[in-house]
Amino acid sequence: MSDTTVLAMDPVGLIALRGPLDVLAPAVEAETGCARPAQRLSTAANGMRVMWMSPDELMLICDHAAAPDIAARLTDRLGDAFATVVVVSDARVLFELTGPGAVLALASLMPVDFARLDPAEVRRTRMAQIPAAIWREGAAWRVMCFRSVARYAETLLRGAVPA
C-alpha cells in the first residue's frame, strides 16, 4: 500500500450558504449548474461541487480566486430572500488521499462505516480529535478540516497510511 499518498491541496474556493434549501438550491444551480444535492450528498458540474451540509446549509467548492465574485452573484440572485452567502475559502484546508490504502487510513481515524457510505456522500464526522468532512472525488478521497489544525490533520493522515 506504499503507493497510497496524502497531498495537502492548493487553496480552493469555499462558499457557505445558509437558508432554506428550496431557496438556495435554484440560485446555486443557476449560478453553477450543480443540481440540488439530496440529504448528505453532493453534486458536481462545471468544475464546481455543491455539498449538503445540514438542513439549511450548502457549501460550494469552486476556484479560489473566483469565489468572491461567485458569492457576490449568488447574493444578487438570492435577492431579498432570507439567505446568507459567505466566502469561507481561507477557513478550511483540503487534503487528497489516493491509492489502495486510502480507505483504511480514513477508517483508522473516523467512526465511519465506509461500506455503507453513498458514493456521492459528504460525511461530516470526527477525525481523531477534530471535525472533518470527507467525500470521494473520482478515485480519490477529499478530507476537509479547519485551517488552524491543518498540521495536526496532515500528521494524522500520514501516520494512518498503511505501510
Binding site: Q39, R40, S54, P55, P111, R124, T125, R126
Partner: peptide, 12 residues
C-alpha cells in the same frame, strides 16, 4: 433526525 445519520456518542 436532521441529517439522518446514526452516529456514535463521540460525534455528539
Amino acid at each position: 433526525p436532521n441529517c439522518g445519520l446514526a452516529v456514535e456518542e463521540t460525534e455528539l
